[in-house]
Design a binder for these strands. Structure first.
Lengths: 166, 166
DNA sequence: GCAAATTCATTTGTATACTAACAATAATTG
DNA sequence: CAATTATTGTTAGTATACAAATGAATTTGC
């Protein structure tokens, strides 16, 4: 099978870090290697994670943000839409769309808040509650698969470092 | 050596759950804490990074993916659009939009490839080349600001771990 | 040398994500 | 109490991201 030709096949890979600042040349690339920057590495790691997420959750499964919302709602309480967004690191515009799509699929319900007419309370539907155990099982498998390249100690270290970057 | 034992068992946090095994309640939350999962932590860390990126690049600056494309093009060679996508971890549909927006702003040019009529060659425009030194300077500041909560050793460890997750 | 497979770029559709502006409602404060 | 301020949710607009389908061009495999 012809594998997808990777970048390495067609591009002269600068390989590892070279201490030599290449001088002389007109370009003067200024010693900046995109592939070593934290933003690029995080983006790639996230892409892989999301691919794993979709593979394990399956075609009808929730997206990562949809699952995040359902996970928080699985505690059982009704939560205002904006607060749920804060709990799942989504701004009001983003959580709105996520909840709308979950509601379309019958997994959550939206109710007016009797104490505050601005608020919309969100909770899992019966169908949503039934889905939770299976989703949590898959979510654990997703975390395990994402961290599979690392040993236990390395994974713990990574999580601790990531937690300090927010 | 520490074999790659399934990370699945590392998920079982010894710290989290309080002792209430009898579970008189219906919920049985199953020992899953969203905020400790690698996907959630990466998403949050990325959100913070992107906010830093936008703050330092400024209102007229490129987005992270736009800058990634410009950075790769700054080596000076003309690159086919799809290959540039591979080099910057974007699929063909994504890189198309990124290049289109850079072209609208006069930072890159698209040319037909004389050797392969399917291909579109992309290169920096004069305006794009002029912008590169300032952008690289800011990009370094962005990396530094993103990693600021960590010591140098911790940052190196994080980058090494992230690099193994893709 | 030619059919089959692959690659390149594009288009369409779905789903985040954020900014900015907005209206309705609540809370605060002078 | 009235005026200001803050919060909640919505809408519109921009920009990733990827899947799937498509058409054109190039490689391949026999």
């Amino acid at each position: 099978m012809s594998r997808q030709d990777s970048v390495a096949d067609t591009v002269t890979k600068p390989t590892a870090r070279q201490h030599k600042p290449s001088s002389a040349s007109t370009a003067a690339p200024m010693d900046y290697v995109l592939d070593e920057q934290v933003g690029f590495l995080m983006r790639r790691a996230q892409q892989r994670h999301i691919a794993i997420f979709q593979r394990i959750m399956g075609d009808n499964g929730p997206t990562p943000t949809q699952f995040a919302a359902m996970s928080k709602l699985s505690a059982g309480e009704e939560i205002s839409q904006n607060l749920l967004g804060r709990m799942t690191a989504m701004d009001p515009a983003t959580i709105k769309g996520v909840i709308a799509r979950l509601e379309e699929r019958g997994l959550v319900e939206r109710l007016p808040d009797p104490d505050d007419q601005r608020r919309v309370r969100v909770r899992l539907s019966a169908k949503g509650r039934e889905a939770i155990p299976g989703l949590l099982e898959k979510a654990k498998a997703i975390t395990a698969a994402t961290l599979a390249p690392l040993s236990r100690e390395e994974a713990e270290r990574l999580l601790a470092l990531l937690a300090r970057l927010d």
